[in-house]
């Protein structure tokens, strides 16, 4: 299992993570990110890695 971390000081709710891995990330209308699942299993890992790499504010990290 890999553990997802969000730096909420950096996150501005741009939502790229949600479009790449919607089972893990959801943004609300006020721009707040909810982490729906903290752990990513092997099946989801590629999507989550893409979401982490795709964050423009580098607010996401993954501990594998």
């Amino acid at each position: 299992m890999a553990c997802i971390k969000v730096d909420y000081d950096k996150c501005t709710g741009l939502g790229i993570c949600e479009s790449l891995a919607p089972e893990f990330f959801e943004v609300s209308d006020d721009g707040n990110l909810t982490l729906l699942e903290e752990e990513a299993g092997p099946d989801a890992l590629d999507d989550v890695r893409e979401a982490v790499a795709g964050c423009p504010t580098e607010a996401l990290s993954l501990k594998e």
Binding site: G13, G15, I16, E18, S19, P22, E26, V27, S28, D29, D30, G31
Partner: peptide, 15 residues
């Protein structure tokens, strides 16, 4: 516009 909860759900639909 000011609908951040909606936009990415649609991105998935366009995809």
């Amino acid at each position: 516009v000011n609908r951040q909860a909606e936009v990415m759900k649609y991105r998935a639909q366009i995809k």
